[in-house]
Design a protein around this nucleic acid. Structure first.
Lengths: 225, 225
DNA sequence: TCTCCTTGTCGTCAATCTGACGATAACCCT
DNA sequence: AGGGTTATCGTCAGATTGACGACAAGGAGA
């Protein structure tokens, strides 16, 4: 074993599940394929890993190319390696999950065809096994909101407690009591840092603005309805 | 993009982090390499994915080959794809985590050199980037004990509450109050199913024997520390 | 057999946490 | 000025948690 000469050759790609919360829906970034197979079908953005580049770096590169924004949270989701998942050849794809705030710039598809944000509830069939990858990504995001500060990644740099609460409500599809949510979220050590500023952009009484704090895990976790 | 002719060729392997609890220590299954590079060095068991086989199936196949036992819990851990992680060629490795009860049969290394259980606290340097993979696997196992019934995978088919508690104590490296642990663990819905039998194999008063229940998540979770 | 030792299981209690919800504050608009 | 909207604080009962006492039920050895 481990003889370099006789290993079966694989293509390795990265696929991105990029999620955002916009206009009251959890949305995924999808591109419309311009070539066969699955021509004209929606697919996850992604591409080949280059020879001299790490898989993580390939994912980061694709993410910047697709969203035009760098610095987004990016984590490995899973790897998909069924023999016939790409009809042309043996492809193993490493999927990544990225969470983005509602991006001010529309997505600039450099090499891909039209890219757009699609509410995950309206996604029907996707190319390859991308429907499953997307669904795994959404489930991972839902789970991670419980015990990590990841919900803040959907917000801008500064946000109110109510904006964060709406992220949770939309991603989980539940409604949360504003008062209890406020108590819990401000009680978690290191989750939020007050800026001292307030905003009235949500209407009503001015709300305090916060930044992400240094916490990497939530103790205690927020529990899903 | 996506033209089958000009993709960079990769080798794809699976690496296994197989953990068990034995003689008061969390142990990993390691093999000693018989060939260069890293000849004579400990490494994780693993091997090439075959052309017509899914990556998951390759992991399952290697697991049976290495442990001689089938039906073990197996889940994907992460994928490691740094360009120079194997000095010979570009290898992307999909790592899997498996949890095993203390296996009665010693490990029968079919193609690998000597395989043995090594306490994770005594593991020093490993071949390739396997030290990092092992450490990621251990951390994943620790985290999953909190909110999944995975601790039961370290036990046999029938086990006592105290045996399960020792799994938690050893994996987490803490000591837990037997009475509170008993209350929590028997209170979680669907975690344990009483067999009606008792055993005195741990000494002292006979303890009730349980089977794994149908629960897939723990509500509420068990908390570390 | 009697005692001791070991381990398992049930109970108690105070501190904390949770969820439901009342009350008030502070803005905007008319 | 008054009504609508949202933010934030408080209260209170019920559940959960951690610390720990008490007792049960086996084995080992005197």
């Amino acid at each position: 074993m481990y003889t370099p000469s006789d290993f079966p050759p694989f293509a390795v790609t990265v696929d991105l599940v990029v999620l955002t919360v916009r206009s009251d829906a959890l949305c995924a970034l999808l591109v419309r394929r311009g070539e066969a197979p699955f021509r004209g079908r929606w697919a996850l953005p992604g591409g080949f890993v280059r020879v001299s580049e790490s898989v993580d770096a390939a994912a980061a590169r694709e993410l910047v190319e697709e969203t035009g924004v760098s610095g987004l949270h990016l984590e490995q989701l899973a790897t998909y390696g069924e023999p016939r998942r790409d009809p042309r050849m043996r492809v193993v794809s490493v999927a990544y999950l990225a969470l983005a705030p509602d991006l001010p710039v529309p997505v600039a598809g450099t090499d891909a065809a039209a890219a757009s944000w699609v509410p995950v509830s309206e996604v029907s069939t996707l190319a390859f096994d991308h429907a499953r990858i997307l669904s795994d990504g959404v489930e991972r995001a839902r789970a991670k909101l419980e015990y990590t500060p990841l919900g803040t990644e959907f917000c801008g740099a500064e946000f109110t407690v109510a904006e964060l609460r709406r992220v949770y409500e939309i991603v989980w599809g539940v409604s949360l009591d504003p008062r209890n949510f406020h108590r819990k979220v401000t009680g978690v050590d290191g989750l939020l840092e007050a800026t001292g500023e307030t905003t009235t952009r949500d209407g009503g009484r001015p709300a305090a603005l916060f930044r992400r704090g240094p916490a990497t895990a939530l103790h205690p976790p927020l529990v899903r309805g």
